[in-house]
C-alpha cells in the first residue's frame, strides 16, 4: 500500500508541480514495425539476420521544459531473427550461392522505454533517446522440424538504449508522430543454463531499428 502511495506521489509531483500549475501532459497510442534481431556469435558458416515484427505501446509525455519532454512508453515488442546459411547451388562452371534460413527465433517482450524527446524550435522535428527494460514474455523457435517453445535458452530480461528522430504533425490538440529509432541491447542474452552447456559460450545481443507511428493527444494547459 505504501508503495502505491509513493508511486502516486511521484506521478503527482510531475503532473502537479510545486507552482500549482498543471504540467503539460501528452497521451498517445503508438505502434509499428521493428527490425530487431540477434547479433553476435552464430554457428559456423551461418549468420543472424533481423526480420520485421510488430510492436505497440502507450505514450505518456510530461513537459520538462519548452523543448524537452520526459517520455514513458510501456508496450509489447515482438522481435524476430533468422539463422541464415549460405550454400553453394551452382555448378563448377557457374558457381553461385544461395542463402537459406534454417531457424527463426521469435520473441515477445514487455517493454518499458523511458527517455526524453528534445524538440526543435518549431516543435515539429524531435530527437528522442533513453533506455528500456524488457521482460521476456514468450520465445518460439521455428525450425524445419516444427515449432517449439524452449525454456531457459535466453535470459528472461533485456536492457537496451535507444536513440532516434521523428516528425510531429500537429492537428489542433492532436498530433501524429512518425519516428525511427535505433535500439541497442546491452545484455548478453545467453542464459546461465546455456553458459554451462558450452565449452566456449557464445555472446548474443538483440539490436535493430524501430519504425514507429503514434497518435497523441496533448492536454490543454
Amino acid at each position: 500500500m505504501s508503495r502505491t502511495v509513493l508511486v502516486a506521489l511521484i506521478i503527482a509531483a510531475f503532473v502537479f508541480p510545486a507552482g500549482g500549475a498543471v504540467a503539460q501532459v501528452t497521451l498517445g497510442l503508438g505502434g509499428g514495425l521493428s527490425r530487431i534481431g540477434i547479433s553476435g556469435d552464430a554457428p559456423l558458416d551461418a549468420s543472424w539476420a533481423a526480420r520485421f515484427a510488430a510492436f505497440a505501446d502507450l505514450h505518456v509525455e510530461l513537459d520538462v521544459s519548452d523543448d524537452v519532454g520526459l517520455v514513458v512508453e510501456p508496450g509489447l515488442q515482438f522481435r524476430s531473427s533468422a539463422l541464415e546459411h549460405t550454400i553453394s547451388t551452382g555448378t563448377a562452371l557457374a558457381p553461385s550461392d544461395t542463402t537459406v534460413d534454417s531457424v527463426y527465433v521469435n520473441t515477445a517482450y514487455w517493454s518499458l522505454p523511458v527517455g526524453i524527446r528534445v524538440y526543435s524550435a518549431s516543435r515539429r522535428w524531435y530527437f528522442t533517446t533513453g533506455a528500456a527494460a524488457h521482460l521476456l514474455q514468450k520465445i518460439e523457435i521455428d525450425t524445419l522440424d516444427g515449432v517449439y517453445e524452449p525454456d531457459n535458452v535466453i535470459q528472461n530480461y533485456d536492457v537496451s538504449v535507444f536513440l532516434g528522430g521523428g516528425y510531429r504533425i500537429p492537428i489542433d490538440q492532436w498530433s501524429v508522430c512518425l519516428e525511427a529509432r535505433y535500439q541497442q541491447g546491452l545484455i548478453d542474452l545467453i542464459s546461465d543454463d546455456q553458459q554451462q552447456t558450452f565449452h566456449q559460450a557464445p555472446v548474443i545481443r538483440m539490436s535493430g531499428l524501430l519504425f514507429r507511428a503514434s497518435v497523441e493527444w496533448r492536454f490543454a494547459p
Binding site: 547479433s39 553476435g40 556469435d41 559456423l44 546491452l186 566456449q200 555472446v203 545481443r205
Partner: peptide, 15 residues
C-alpha cells in the same frame, strides 16, 4: 579440429 580454431572473433560491449 573444429574445436581448435586458428582465429576467434568475439563480440564485446563496454559501457
Amino acid at each position: 579440429t573444429s574445436d581448435n580454431q586458428l582465429f576467434d572473433t568475439k563480440p564485446a560491449l563496454n559501457v
